[in-house]
């Protein structure tokens, strides 16, 4: 199983690559919409990219919509990853 730290690194890498963002911008307190310049349309692309990278489904829209910062996103992906591992 991959550790939370590995998940964080992978999420950062995906955001940098898929949204062509400068890695130094990708701090946990960076807000997706203001600091990173994503919009509601990018949110779907982000979900699709993360689902593919981690082989899991992010079907809880409420939880996805509640994500404001990159730190929130780390937390959500870690939580889903751990839930998935618990099921297996």
């Amino acid at each position: 199983m991959i550790s939370d730290e590995q998940v964080r690194r992978r999420v950062t890498q995906i955001m940098a690559e898929e949204f062509e963002l400068e890695p130094e911008l990708l701090q946990p307190d960076a807000t997706l919409y203001e600091d990173l310049g994503l919009d509601s349309l990018d949110a779907v692309d982000m979900v699709v990219a993360l689902e593919k990278a981690f082989g899991m489904k992010m079907t809880d829209e409420e939880a996805v919509r509640a994500v404001r910062t990159l730190g929130d996103l780390f937390e959500l992906v870690c939580r889903l990853k751990n839930q998935q591992a618990a099921k297996e």
Partner: peptide, 11 residues
């Protein structure tokens, strides 16, 4: 478009 959009649409 960003890479994420290309990948999503292509797949």
């Amino acid at each position: 478009f960003r890479k994420a959009f290309y990948n999503r649409i292509r797949n």
